[in-house]
Every structure is written in C-alpha cells, then in structure tokens.
Design a binder for these strands. Sequence first.
DNA 1: GTTCAAATTTTACGCGCGTAAAAAAAATGT
DNA 2: ACATTTTTTTTACGCGCGTAAAATTTGAAC
Lengths: 343, 343
Amino acid sequence: MTEQKIRNMEEFAALSGLSRPTVSKYFNNPDSVRASTRKRIEDALERYNFRPNIYAVNQNRRLTKSIGIMVPYLADPFFAEMARTIETLCIEAGFRPILLSSHGDSELEAENLESLLSFKPAGVLFAPLGRISDKAAIERFCRDVPTVLFDSNLDGMGEAFVGSDNASFVNQTVDYLCRTGEAPCFFEMRTPANPNANKRRMAYIDAMERHGQEPVVISIEGDGWGFEEIGRQGTHTALATNDFKTNTVLCSNDRLAIGLLAACYERGLGVGRSPDSALRVASHDDHPYSRFTCPALTTAAHSYSDVANRSVEILFEMIESGARCETRVETLFPAKLVVRASA
Amino acid sequence: MTEQKIRNMEEFAALSGLSRPTVSKYFNNPDSVRASTRKRIEDALERYNFRPNIYAVNQNRRLTKSIGIMVPYLADPFFAEMARTIETLCIEAGFRPILLSSHGDSELEAENLESLLSFKPAGVLFAPLGRISDKAAIERFCRDVPTVLFDSNLDGMGEAFVGSDNASFVNQTVDYLCRTGEAPCFFEMRTPANPNANKRRMAYIDAMERHGQEPVVISIEGDGWGFEEIGRQGTHTALATNDFKTNTVLCSNDRLAIGLLAACYERGLGVGRSPDSALRVASHDDHPYSRFTCPALTTAAHSYSDVANRSVEILFEMIESGARCETRVETLFPAKLVVRASA
DNA sequence: GTTCAAATTTTACGCGCGTAAAAAAAATGT
DNA sequence: ACATTTTTTTTACGCGCGTAAAATTTGAAC
C-alpha cells in the first residue's frame, strides 16, 4: 500500500491507466467491466486505497445505496437496540445506514427529515415521535422518499407500518396476572407522546372487562424522556395516596416499571410472587435492562428482530421493485410473555 | 407557503429574481447581502420553503459547518447520553452533527472514519473502541481531520483528549469504602477493550497499597458489550468459589455492577450499608440507570457535561482558529462521588 | 452632473462523481 | 479478410452548490 493520497476518482483512474467513467462503472458493479480492466483497477486499489466519496456518489446516483434510520430518542435503550439491529441488517444487505435521533423534539424531527431529503436515501425506516410529530412535514417527506414507519404508527403515513400488537402485549400480561393472582392496576403516564401507550391503556380496560374485573388506571404526571424518574416519583405519590387498589401493578412500559421498582425498594416494599411480597409488578417491552432489575421484570417482549427484519424487508422490496406499495400494509407482531421474578 | 417544489438554488434564485451565487452568499451569511436583496430572498423563502442541499454544500465549502461524532457502542446508555449531550451542544453552536456508532467492531470503526472523510466535517469528536481499534487507520484519519478524542485515550492520536481521571474515580471510591467499612475487592472484566478499565485496576491497586490493604482483583471472563450479563454470571461464579475476600466490592464500571446486583438479588444476598446486608457494592461512571438499581448504586460520577463541554470547546476553538493544537493537551476531569444506598 | 471608491452582484470555474450517447474495441459470423 | 453485432470505453454533460475574479451598481463627495 503506497501512502500517496488520492484526491478523487479522476486521479485514481489516471493511475490505473483508465478513464474515470470506466472506474465509476467498476465501483457501481465490478462485473460490468472486462476482466482485464477489472484486474487493473483492483491492482491499483491494492496500491492506492482509493474509495469514491459516498456523498458525491449519492448526489448523482439515480438510486442510492443509502438508508435513513430515524428514531425518536436514541438514548432510550429500546430505540438504541432497535436502531442497532436495523443498522446491522442494512449493512449486511450492502446498504449504508445513516442514523438520526429526534431527541424527543418534534422540530428536530422535522429538521432531520429535511436533512434526509438532501441525503437522497433509497428509503427510510422511521419511528416517529407520535402525538407531537409535525404530521404535515412527515407527510410531505413520505411523498418524496419511500418510508416505512415502525414502532409508532401515524395514520396513513409512509408506505407501511411495522410494529407490535399492543393488544397482544396487554392481553398476555393481564391474562397471566389474573390467572395467577389479583387483577392488575394499570400504571402509566398521563400524556405520553407515543401512541402505543394509549392503545395499551385501552387494551387493558378491554382485557379487564373480559375478565369481569374493574379496571383501575393510575395516570401519573411527568414530561420528557426520563421515564424511570417519572415512574419512581409517580409510584411514591401513588403509594402515599393508596392508588394501587390491588397488590398487582401492570406498567405501561418497562422504563416506568424500573422507576416503580426503585420506589418500592426505597420504601422497603418487597416485589415478587412470594406470599411475603407486597406487590407483583409486570410490564411491557422487554427493555434491554428488564432482565437485570431486582427482581427481574416479568414483561411482554417485543420481537425486536421480527420488527426490524420485516421493516427492512418491506423497504428493500420497495426499493428493488422501484414501486411504492399499492396498499398501505400494517404489520403487527404479537408479544411473547417473559415470566421473571417480579410477577 | 406555496406547495411548489424547488429543485435547487438556481430555481429558487430565479424565483427571487437574483442570481444563484447571491442567494448562496445569503445562505452563507444573511448579512453579506444588501438589506433589500435580503428581503427579497426572505420573502421568497416564505413562499417557497427552499433549503440548500446540505451535502452539496459540504462538498464545496472550504470549511463545513458539520461535526462528526463517533462512539464505540451507541446502545450503551453511557455513550448514548454522551452523544446526545454533545449533539445538542453542536446544534446550539450552529453546527450539524452526524452521529456514528462503531457497534463494538473495529472494522466498522475504520469504515466510519472513511465515511466521515467523505463527509468533510469541520472536526470530529471521537471516542475510540480502545485496545482493538485500528490505530493506523485512526492516525491517518487524524492527519486529515481535526479530531478530539474523548472518553478513551489513544496515545498521541487526535489533537487533544478529554476524559475522566480514572485515578480520581478509584481513589474516591476506595477512600470512601475503606473509611466506612471493609476494604473493597475489585471486580472487572479480564480483557476489556476500553483502556480506562486498565487504568482503574492499576489505580485500585495503588489506592489499596496506600491504605495498607491487600488488593484483591477479581477478573471475570466475557466478551462483547453485554456487560450486565457478564457481570451477573461472573458474580455467580465468584460467589460460588468465594472470590470476594471482604464484604465490599468495587466494580470497574456501573454496567458490571448492575449485573452484580442482579446476581446478588437472585441469591438473596442483601446489598447495602446496613448491618444485615451481606455486601456493599460501589462502582464507577454514574451510568444513567445507576440511580434506579436496587439498591441505588454508590458510584463515582463522570461529569458528562464537563467532558462534553470541554471536548466541544477545544474542537470549536481549533475550527475557528483554523489551526491544529500546537501541543496535544490531555484534559482529565475528576469524579464526583455519589453516595447512594448500595455502599 | 461627474467622479471614484466601496459594496454588491454576476461570470466562470471547480468540487467529486453518475450516466446517456457516441466512439472504439472486441467478438462473431462468413 | 471483411462486415456485423455486441461489449466496453470515452466523450460530454449534469447533479447542487461554493467561491475567486470580473463586472456592475450604489452612493457619497465634489
């Protein structure tokens, strides 16, 4: 490997004794040039370590090999894990992912969409903020770029939606809890941005009615993405005012549950299935850390890989066929109940 | 706002009744055009919602307004939080951050550097993988792009390093633990990629010797980035073979500690300061979740904001002055001991 | 009304590359 | 060996924009 730096494809082509477009053709598809030409390029490649500027390539290609990935809050381990999985799938398929986080801010979300537009991705995998999203901006974006929504659905936006079946999540946890002990109260944030939260509450009420039980919903205050702290404080309040009507709590999501467990521990309340425990706690998501709470959290698990795989699959199919989906398909994966020690 | 779509600056300039370079000048600095010209552009902007293609801009600008941010593993909440903080600082300063994760893979790390090179960022904030990093690739990159390393230092690479003072972390935890009870054993991974881990072990040994205590290092096996699970299993092994020589454990980092706490809970071992607790556990990092473990984790906290602020500060100074640092400065921030319930 | 320097705008070219169409080369058939 | 077809390479132009240098406008002073 010579240390000589190559500025651009022109320079590299000259060193290979070829014209730039021929080299361009090679990088687009190595088999599209004659074997002898290919060898000359690859020999030069050994010596000079040149790579086309991906951004210049994107600017000119009719169809790029780039995929945009955007999540509402990357510092949430759920989305971090989701993004990681999707990124890996894209890389394996020969695409170049570009990852963006909205940081919980709808303006930044809209900004990011603008930025993605400039990037000219072949397609975008997008988990929107939800309620607070700038719907008009998203709709405009989706007209220009093939987009698959995941995790949070926005009516009619994007070519398809892939997510988890909130009813399946809640039915499984409620059924399990009712079968094995007292019926659960439902613990949630009052004004969640994420639309799944509302669906879960409604599914809880339905499920409780099916079981002939009175639903008890505890909606706690709190803004932002610090769900654990919101859950912790909300639990202290709820316990102080005796809001939990049974010894069983079903949390809307694992991050709230983590906060709830912390509050219980602080108050010396035992959590678990054993008779001397004060509370049973279950939740939804199978957050990466729910395996490590004390006690380990009983929860309904997303199938990370199913959601990631299917989202990517649908997007790749659209990209390859060059067509948009004729009808907007919504794919919902059922949850898998993971029984651990907390309930 | 007219719905008419603008393809490029040429088209927008025509609609404004100006030449493209004038419009370009405006976007570069709105004050660099005459007030009347500016008004014409801004009026047109109201009606047509045009924005220059950021990637085309980057391709041509001598100095871009983009900042690369790269961390070793974005699904680790520590790095997620760090990245989020730095991103926010960059946005506030009028820069456009682009965030990349190495996903724990040194090849991807090198790939990402190549990608950043194409992106032509004004500068890069880079937390390398550490031991497994492709040093040659990083060195090449740093020659071309002003780079500030953070969190993990690599000798001589980048223009500056900003991180935390591992000795300060360990001294504070060891001092505190020795002062308040039995001297701690040190719990760590045998082959960590991150160089901070080695510094912490050495600092532990030093600190123990200063206290006239025999250091006990428990190095557990495990690969990858699933530190909690590694810590959990390692704890079970260590407890089974009675490796903890005292009732106090100091973990190399919080993620290991989270696993350790889970294992203790599984075994019914109480953790905390009270006389009936079997173990005291402390750690380092002040991971975003260490507030919510059961019991809450006593730990030495990074100053996230100090590290983020200083890294960004140094980089911006370099960018503004247009010069590289004359000497490579290493800034280390001391830890802040956060005493919670676990020790 | 003229002059001239300063501010502003335009011209012309470049960034690094993709791609259609034209040209050249190679392969095939006779 | 020559005509024809097919493949490969090159020419020429375009993508969306920055920027130095040239041309123009402005406006203040006389």
